[in-house]
Write a protein that binds this DNA or RNA. Structure first.
Length: 635
RNA sequence: GCCGAUAUAGCUCAGCUGGCCAGAGCGUCUCACUUGUAAUGAGAGGGUCGGGGGUUCGAAUCCCUCUAUCGGCUCCA
């Protein structure tokens, strides 16, 4: 067999060699590091590597598969500890997730913070005992009756729902769990762990089911990794846009105004204005036409659009205007369609690209609101492209290139997903196929790597979803491009073709930023509040040393403002140290100190955020430098 | 909406098992200081203890309810 070791080296063994032969084969350290193995593409327990297996790769914590095995085993360790402390708790499932693991339990009284500490110390005991994970294959009926005997109704349900006749179980000490595996060789591998939080979660994610108690945790093969991870979590917390939003005076949410409704403060509004101006300029450049549509509309349009039928649970109660119900709009599409349909459209004027920073209101359940990222009123950077079927592929290419440009300006990497026809959908096969092909072609012509998401499209058409990767490697839902058959039909949106007949348009719905709220909330975290010059609400603060230098400082501010830069004077009667501290905390990119020396020479002493003093510059020199960073949108 | 937690001054937080006018730091205001690269000093002002209801001789503290927030579930731009 050929064995690949964690360090990437490979070695061939003769037929009949055992796992232990492989273990001592090359490096002594690897047996300690290996968590599981991959045989013929299947991840398996180390113990099940058999002599004669052809290609074996040992998995370590460095690989996603290795992590997954590690965390899943950690979940079992936790469940074992919980069963010891709370024998009446019913176990359910405990998978590995992207950054750790959880296990759901059914208990009469929810766990408390104190319980977490107790469970942690019991886990330590389980780890110390270092019992092996023992795999066992049993008949399905046998497993079901065993779990019945143990009074584990959830395991019974799971076992019964498995199609195969044989089921694997894993035993750790006296804790038996129904599980596909694979697992670590023994519990002792779980060297360092931390239980992070307790939360309610529905059995099988269905809110009609019983609420279970979920415990989240992370674990690592050594202390250092755990420490690094906890520090990363600290960093995430520090970057929280809700905390930075308050510190940097960007936005707030008010109890009396209502949850999920954002108050944009002057600085946050400036940030938003800069993004919006850039957005508008880029749209004009690319042949989009800016429109405005009303915030409320008669029920008649939402009947035609089907929103009242399909989307009413997300819409707010209507208001009565002269006997007709009017609704606050949850989407911008109907308005754009109505603009398109104000007159006959010739194929000669297609594509028509209408865009709007359109504010919509959607009902969101109270428990889901989250700062700026999940709100009830938000402004989408919306656009609807009306084109002929032939134009669709190139339009999608245009949008994709647009998206790439915009995202690189903000320093985001991204990952594209192509979602195809879901089970519940409208439209004929032909439309779906041609629309899906348009999207696929566009991804290929723009050389965009994508992941296929079969069946994840919207009921009215296929879509491309783009997820942004921020500075901490976290993924955010970003741009989406959707082909919409539904509205094109419902509103009967046509154009006159070269043949003089009416043809149905292809309608493409897309957002680039998503919504101003979500995008800016995400950007706050991406930049940790330290925005590049072009986005900074205040780009430079001029700080006179004493009152005697205030007038001169004022002229520096004016010089910056004259070039369209955003500058402020810190004329407070405070020491320079204090002024610098405050500006550093407000993440102002440039601090310009002026005292007697600078006044005499016509210069400023420049301090760059988080870099410190970078020396003296002539006023016009620094104006030019900041102006250049601003216009080039440097990151 | 559901499970759990939380809500005290503009901000961050003390206030134990109910008991004299509810505290601190920062910010704010006033005064002094006129300052050279991350917090000058002194003084003053500031609170319906999230809203409403209840228990009690007495409630920031206990109970109910509403609202909002936080961690999740579900959902989503």
């Amino acid at each position: 067999m050929v064995v690949t070791y964690p360090d990437g080296n490979t070695k061939e063994f003769e037929q009949g060699a055992t796992f232990m032969d492989a273990a001592i084969g090359i490096s002594e350290g690897f047996a300690r590091k290996a968590l599981a193995a991959q045989v013929d593409g299947q991840v398996v327990d180390l113990s099940s590597v058999m002599p004669g297996d052809l290609a074996v790769t040992f998995l370590t914590f460095d690989s996603d598969e290795g992590k997954s095995v590690f965390w899943h085993s950690s979940a079992h360790v936790m469940a074992a500890a919980v069963k010891r402390l709370f024998p009446q708790a019913k176990v359910t499932i405990g998978p590995a997730i992207d950054d750790g693991f959880y296990y759901d339990f059914d208990v009469e009284t929810p766990f408390t913070e104190d319980d977490l500490a107790k469970i942690e110390s019991e886990m330590k005991a389980v780890v110390k005992e270092n019992a092996p994970f023992v795999r066992e294959i049993v008949e399905k009926d046998e497993a079901v009756s065993r779990f019945k005997d143990e009074d584990e109704p959830y395991k019974v349900e799971l076992a019964e729902s498995i199609e195969d006749e044989e089921i694997s179980t894993y035993t750790l000490g006296d804790f038996v769990d129904l599980c596909r595996g694979p697992h670590l060789p023994s519990a002792g591998r779980v060297k360092s762990f931390k239980l992070l939080s307790i939360a309610g979660a529905y059995w099988r994610g269905d809110e009609n089911n019983r609420m279970l108690q979920r415990i989240y945790g992370v674990s690592f093969p050594d202390k250092k990794l755990l420490k690094a991870h906890l520090e990363w979590l600290e960093e995430v917390k520090k970057r929280d846009h809700r905390i930075l939003g308050q510190k940097l005076d960007l936005f707030s949410v008010d109890d009396e105004i209502g949850g999920g409704l954002i108050l944009w403060h002057p600085r946050g509004s400036m940030l938003r204005k800069v993004v919006e101006d850039y957005w508008r300029d880029e749209h004009e450049k690319r042949g989009y036409q800016l429109v405005f549509t009303p915030h409320i509309a008669s029920e008649r349009i939402f009947q035609t659009s089907g929103h009242l039928e399909n989307y009413s649970e997300n819409m707010y109660s209507p208001m009565d205007i002269d006997g007709t119900d009017y609704y606050v709009k949850p989407m911008n599409c109907p308005g754009h369609i109505k603009i398109f349909k104000t007159r006959m459209r010739s194929y000669r004027e297609l594509p028509i690209r209408l865009c709007e920073l359109g504010t919509v209101y959607r009902y969101e359940r109270s428990g889901v609101l989250h700062g700026m990222l999940r709100v009830r009123g938000f402004t989408q950077d919306d656009s609807h492209i009306f084109c002929t079927p032939d134009q669709a592929p190139s339009e999608v290419v245009g949008v994709l290139n647009f998206v790439k440009d915009m995202m690189s300006t903000f320093g985001y990497e991204f990952q594209a997903y192509l979602s195809t026809r879901p089970e519940k959908s409208i439209g004929d096969d032909e439309s779906w196929e041609s629309a899906t092909n348009s999207l696929k072609e566009a991804l290929e012509t723009t050389e965009t790597e994508y992941i296929l998401d079969p069946g994840e499209g919207v009921f009215y058409g296929p879509k491309i979803d783009i997820k942004l990767k921020d500075a901490l490697g976290r993924m955010w839902q970003g741009p989406t491009i959707q082909v919409d058959f539904n509205l094109a039909n419902r509103f009967d949106i046509n154009y006159i073709g070269p043949d003089g007949n009416e043809h149905k348009v292809v309608m493409i719905h897309r957002v680039v930023l998503g919504s101003m709220e979500r995008f800016i909330g995400g950007a706050i975290e991406h930049f940790a509040g330290a925005f590049p010059v072009w986005l900074s609400p205040v780009q430079a603060v001029v700080m006179p040393i004493t009152d005697a230098h205030k007038d001169y400082a004022e002229t520096v501010v004016e010089a910056l403002k004259a070039k369209g830069l955003r500058a402020e004077l810190d004329g407070r009667n405070e020491k320079i140290n204090r002024k610098i501290r405050d500006s550093e905390e407000m993440k102002i990119p440039y601090m310009l100190v002026v005292g007697q020396k600078e006044m005499d020479n016509g210069t400023v002493a420049v301090r760059r955020r988080s870099e410190g003093d970078i020396g003296a510059f002539a006023v016009n020199e620094i104006v030019e430098r900041i102006g250049k960073e601003n216009s080039e949108k440097s990151l």
